[in-house]
Simulated scan of single mutants.
Amino acid sequence: MRKLLYLCFVFTVNASFAQTQADMNKEAYAAYEKADKELNEVYRDILLAYKSDTAFIYNLRASQRIWIAFRDAELNMKYPARDAGFYGSMHPLCRASYLAELTRERTATLRKWLQVAAEGDACSGSVSLKN
């Protein structure tokens, strides 16, 4: 009887953590959306912080457009168009995870413009010396 109760407990616990592929895909896409939202917030904060520097804003916008094209090209390089089913059922999860990774990297890069450059850093470029 104890063994039966134990097995029921184990199966119940395992079943409560089970996810379908659709659930995992949805979670991965939600993580990408969260990363994208954070990127957009950082981008808007930079636009606000540097609004008087028109040359910088012009180049930031150009850089972001190019980065989006780069991100899409990276995704297509990693997962070139293939016959349906080539990458398997995890393909949507993998694509969303890679998009999230690339987006988090871009966000980290852009955050530098929201930090104060070190005093005397001759290579800080357009990064503000004040915040």
Rank of each mutant, 00 (worst) to 15 (best):
residue 43 Y to L: 06
residue 89 S to Q: 14
residue 104 R to Y: 13
residue 121 D to R: 04
residue 109 T to H: 14
residue 62 A to C: 05
residue 67 W to P: 04
residue 111 R to C: 07
residue 39 L to P: 00
residue 15 A to K: 11
residue 73 A to T: 08
residue 73 A to F: 01
residue 101 E to P: 02
residue 82 R to N: 09
residue 17 F to A: 13
residue 109 T to D: 15
residue 98 Y to R: 08
residue 112 K to C: 00
residue 16 S to Y: 11
residue 88 G to H: 01
residue 94 C to D: 11
residue 114 L to A: 06
residue 71 R to K: 15
residue 64 Q to E: 14
residue 118 A to D: 15
residue 66 I to S: 13
residue 60 L to Y: 02
residue 51 K to V: 10
residue 20 T to M: 07
residue 47 L to Y: 08
residue 67 W to N: 06
residue 71 R to P: 04
residue 90 M to S: 13
residue 47 L to F: 05
residue 115 Q to W: 04
residue 58 Y to P: 00
residue 40 N to G: 00
residue 98 Y to K: 10
residue 60 L to C: 11
residue 113 W to P: 04
residue 73 A to H: 08
residue 78 K to I: 13
residue 33 E to A: 10
residue 122 A to M: 14
residue 35 A to W: 01
residue 113 W to N: 08
residue 75 L to V: 11
residue 119 E to G: 08
residue 74 E to S: 12
residue 103 T to C: 10
residue 86 F to C: 02
residue 30 A to K: 10
residue 85 G to W: 02
residue 72 D to N: 10
residue 122 A to Q: 09
residue 42 V to F: 03
residue 98 Y to V: 01
residue 76 N to P: 06
residue 105 E to G: 03
residue 25 N to F: 00
residue 28 A to P: 03
residue 94 C to E: 15
residue 59 N to M: 13
residue 112 K to P: 00
residue 32 Y to Q: 03
residue 11 F to M: 07
residue 72 D to Y: 01
residue 30 A to C: 05
residue 120 G to M: 01
residue 17 F to R: 09
residue 76 N to T: 11
residue 49 A to K: 13
residue 123 C to T: 14
residue 106 R to S: 03
residue 114 L to I: 08
residue 49 A to I: 06
residue 66 I to L: 15
residue 100 A to F: 01
residue 45 D to F: 02
residue 44 R to K: 10
residue 61 R to F: 00
residue 8 C to D: 07
residue 69 A to H: 11
residue 55 A to C: 00
residue 119 E to I: 10
residue 86 F to S: 08
residue 20 T to P: 07
residue 112 K to S: 02
residue 10 V to L: 11
residue 27 E to I: 10
residue 100 A to M: 07
residue 71 R to G: 02
residue 40 N to M: 08
residue 36 D to V: 00
residue 88 G to W: 09
residue 93 L to H: 11
residue 15 A to I: 03
residue 43 Y to I: 01
residue 26 K to H: 14
residue 79 Y to K: 04
residue 27 E to H: 01
residue 109 T to S: 12
residue 21 Q to K: 06
residue 18 A to C: 13
residue 19 Q to Y: 08
residue 51 K to P: 00
residue 69 A to C: 05
residue 13 V to A: 15
residue 107 T to I: 02
residue 98 Y to T: 09
residue 22 A to P: 03
residue 63 S to M: 04
residue 36 D to Q: 05
residue 37 K to S: 05
residue 14 N to Y: 14
residue 111 R to T: 06
residue 107 T to C: 03
residue 123 C to V: 07
